[in-house]
């Protein structure tokens, strides 16, 4: 087995899931939240020439998506190393 102990295996998976859920919450908030559910409220705010809700729906959420994946990759690489399950 790749893990030293059964506890390690559980802890690794728990940390993995918690990172994933945190990032998915951000994913949901910027796209479905800011871009769709609360778009009318945010549209009251001006962001340069944009209404803020419209900006999230057609620009902002996409930038956040890209950032989320790279944050995930970085954090997972650290996690893999800590538990000794990374690829050489």
């Amino acid at each position: 087995m790749a893990f030293k102990t059964e506890e390690d295996k559980k802890a690794y998976w728990r940390d993995n899931l918690s990172l994933m859920l945190k990032l998915l919450i951000v994913w949901f908030v910027v796209s479905f939240g800011c871009g769709i559910l609360f778009v009318d409220v945010l549209n009251e705010v001006r962001f340069f020439g944009f209404k803020l809700g419209f900006w999230f729906a057609q620009q902002g959420a996409i930038y956040v998506f890209v950032a989320l994946i790279f944050v995930y990759v970085r954090q997972m690489n650290i996690l893999d190393k800590r538990y000794g399950v990374d690829e050489e």
């Binding site: 796209s31 871009g35 996409i62 998506f65 990759v73």
Partner: peptide
């Protein structure tokens, strides 16, 4: 499509990019 749909065009913009977050994470 977006040019004729305005704001509603966001379904394509968000839908066809947001799926990659699911792909990468899950």
């Amino acid at each position: 499509l977006i040019s004729f749909m305005g704001y509603d065009g966001a379904v394509y913009l968000l839908g066809w990019t947001g799926g990659y977050v699911l792909l990468a994470l899950c």
